[in-house]
Design a protein around this nucleic acid. Structure first.
Lengths: 213, 213, 213, 213
DNA sequence: CATGAATGAGAATTCATTCAT
DNA sequence: GATGAATGAATTCTCATTCAT
């Protein structure tokens, strides 16, 4: 509701429209970004998909960049709500990993496109100041997972013979790359996928020798 | 694996120069592609890095596309030499997985940039007929790994309670994403990384209950 | 001096609103045009300043162009009322110049923005048929000033050793460019500024030799 | 001559071409800018005038902005060479004014288009940090002229009854607006125009009373 | 009277590619 | 083998304008 003399210099266009329309458009954009890659996606393509002309998108958003920005920051905000809840619950290392993995697959389920974009583009985007929060998030992320692993090694829950940073990367990648193949309509629920992933990660895919015997 | 030469459409230019120069230039290009992404990389940038002007690259290559083509096909050719040797060795499922993972990390070590490019761009490139071999390779790849897993489940080596396609994806991603963080000068040799990965994947990161006791 | 209404091409929109609102909006528009330049001024910016949305301006005006049109024609209409009165008064050359300069500064005081716009944009706008009156006005203007100068040279009031067209341009520019720095709240009244300008122009800024002696 | 590894990140294109070609293109651009105004001039128009495609201009210049930048800064550099020489000559106030006016008309003669651009666009461009030198130059300019006037008033050369800032603006505008009508092929040489301007400014256009008698 | 959403015609700019030298 | 200059198509973004509500 612009009042007389309100000169919104910075954001001439953005944040005008109704939140619902924005969300619709962002969902479309996210889908296309995820499929084609951010750079390879033209604004025109998004507009086509939304049934409007390329220029019309600029009524809703400042730029292509601000679209990814909003897609990623929205996703990360929600992710951290979930993660923070898990981390605040005071669970043991094994249960924390379990809960984080489960939470992650729930996020992948809810924000598949955003996660895929994050995976592919984060490194490059993070170079721009505007996307500094990506780096921040990554740091927090590392702290959460690595810390849990360290706790687990300390209390004997996790193996001590593995390079812990390697283990961290293994876990991290293992979970998130799933966004590249995950389909919401697929056979398994995110919880079921999470259950199996946790099981693989914690206990391995091999049948233990003493069982096999 | 089709090699990417045979394409001298109009000009008698491409594929002229000495093979060594080509390889040098491709190495440079691969590095830049890996770092910035294929789309985001300008021919000019590659030329800059090579100490020449953008136009000059066209003496050596037909197009930007033919550069990735050659980078990826060279990599895949080598990869399959290694894989085929492993698969032909008649090993048991556990040993085959071990060998494939090890071979994979060796390839990551040798072709880090190419692997990173493959990870990021394969899906999109594969849409073009020229890159049909990417899809072929992926199919062969799946057959090799999935087959090994199935063999393992059948003979009791691997757990039967896991969705096998899930396991396959888990394994595949787990190994290859490593290219995104792997640095040849890093602490661990590719063989050491492979050893730890295999150990995690097969036996899990948790200390088994009966040991912990 | 054609007035810029009579243009309701398609819509019955323009020239609807109350004349006061129009004048308010035109004053705002003139200010922005003067400050940023006609081309660089967006309709949105004017609307912002007026506390409405860009589209809403089109209830009041046919187009951006019709805004400048109305601003300039209104100004010129008033200018010529003043000038015509001076020219009809039958004054001598010196007194006529004096009166014209004074009248000009009064117009600058009243229509600072319009004058500034005129100075900057007239040449370009005049190329369009719609703004033909700008050229007409300029011709009339030249006739009035140049004629007065010629009269003055003829009767010995003004120096005969100067190129008269040069003198004309000198005078014309000298007066009107003042619009670019004039501020109504400034130290001097328009009449005082005019007095000093006339004095400079007629008698020069140097102290005459025989006085200095 | 780019050497291997020379990554000119900031200026990917500009400053490549031979200086002569640059100068040619800048001369063309200046002409168009002067005639149509900076904003109203499209890059395409400049390219048309130069007999090339719009995109081709970007081989020579980074942007439309960098074209005006180079045009203006080149002009100002030369202007100050001339001005500085005058100011260093240790002339009296009257002679200094004379010399500055003459130098100014010489610059108008040499850089007519640049001067016209400066007149029309300086205020707006100066808002951008990149064009900070415009403000600097203006300040120096004011200091030079105003200082000379003050010296003249102090030593009795110039009238003391005039507002000195008004006089300064009068002089400044009077000289530079001439760029808007000056044509190199015109009747008068820049020196002749300067002579007449100086005469008008110093001694006025009126015949002194005691002479007229 | 005004808003919200869109249109559509450019605008500047980028970049792979070509080619004469 | 490489340079310098250009092409031309595509891309992001801007903005005056329209119009149903």
């Amino acid at each position: 509701m612009p009042t007389a003399k309100s000169k919104q210099k910075k954001t001439p266009t953005a944040a005008n429209a109704s939140p619902e329309r924005r969300r619709e458009l962002l969902a479309i954009a996210a889908e296309v970004f995820a499929e084609q890659g951010y750079n390879a996606t033209t604004v025109r393509r998004i507009a086509d998909e939304a049934g409007m002309l390329a220029g019309s998108l600029y009524y809703h958003f400042d730029s292509k960049e601000s679209m990814v920005d909003e897609i990623l920051s929205t996703f990360l905000t929600e992710l951290w709500e979930g993660y923070d809840a898990v981390l605040a619950a005071g669970l043991g290392p094994r249960e924390t990993i379990d809960a984080l993995v489960t939470e992650s697959f729930r996020e992948i389920d809810r924000h598949r496109a955003a996660v895929a974009i994050y995976q592919k583009e984060a490194r490059q985007l993070a170079a721009q100041p505007r996307f500094g929060y990506l780096t921040d998030s990554q740091r927090k992320f590392e702290k959460a997972w690595l810390g849990t692993l360290e706790r687990g090694v300390a209390d004997g829950t996790f193996r001590a013979d593995l390079d812990i940073r390697l283990t961290y990367r293994f876990l991290r990648d293992t979970v998130w790359v799933a966004a590249s193949w995950y389909r919401p309509e697929g056979r398994h629920s995110p919880e079921e996928i999470a259950r199996q992933y946790v099981s693989m990660v914690l206990d391995g895919i091999a049948v233990p020798a003493e069982v096999r015997r």
